[in-house]
Amino acid sequence: MTQLFFSDYDIESASTDARPPLVIVGAGGLGREVLLLIQQINEVQPTWQVRGFYDDRAPATPTVAGLPYLGTAADLNATTEPLAVAVAVGSSAGRAGVVARLTSAQLSFPPLVHPGVALHPRQRVMLGAGCLIQQSCVLTCDITLGRFVLLNLGCTVGHDAELADFCSLMPHANVSGAARLAPGVYLGTNATVIQGVQVGENTIVGAGAVAVRDLPANVTAVGVPARAI
Rank of each mutant, 00 (worst) to 15 (best):
V98A: 05
C167V: 14
M170A: 15
A58Q: 10
D214K: 05
Y186F: 14
G146F: 06
L37Q: 04
Q195I: 03
V157I: 15
V138N: 08
G223Q: 14
N218G: 03
R147C: 05
A118E: 11
G188C: 08
Q3I: 15
F109N: 04
L83I: 14
S7Q: 09
V224D: 01
V64W: 10
I24V: 05
P121H: 02
L37F: 08
T47N: 05
L22Q: 02
V149I: 03
V210E: 05
L181N: 00
C131L: 11
V89C: 08
A105W: 00
V99L: 01
G188Y: 04
V98H: 07
L151G: 10
N152W: 01
S13Y: 01
A211Y: 07
V64T: 04
G71W: 06
R57L: 13
D75Y: 00
L112G: 13
Q40G: 03
P111Q: 07
L215M: 13
S13P: 01
F6D: 12
Y69Q: 00
R213I: 01
T144D: 09
A118I: 11
V212R: 10
C141S: 15
V85G: 12
G128D: 14
E33T: 05
R122N: 11
Q123T: 04
P171L: 11
G158A: 12
E43F: 03
G200M: 02
F5C: 08
L70I: 10
I38D: 02
V210L: 13
V197C: 05
P82A: 15
Y54H: 15
A228C: 13
Q135V: 15
A118P: 02
G116M: 07
V25P: 00
G29C: 01
A96W: 02
E12H: 11
T2Y: 07
A93C: 00
V50F: 04
P68C: 06
C167P: 06
I133H: 13
G71P: 04
S91D: 14
V157Q: 09
A65R: 06
L139V: 13
A78Y: 03
G196E: 00
P111D: 03
Y54R: 11
G97Y: 09
Q40E: 15
N174C: 03
I194P: 02
V34N: 01
V34E: 06
R95P: 05
A217L: 01
A73Q: 13
V87E: 07
F53S: 06
R57A: 11
G223L: 13
I11P: 00
S92F: 02
E33Y: 00
I143L: 08
E12Y: 08
L36V: 07
R95E: 01
P62C: 08
L102C: 02
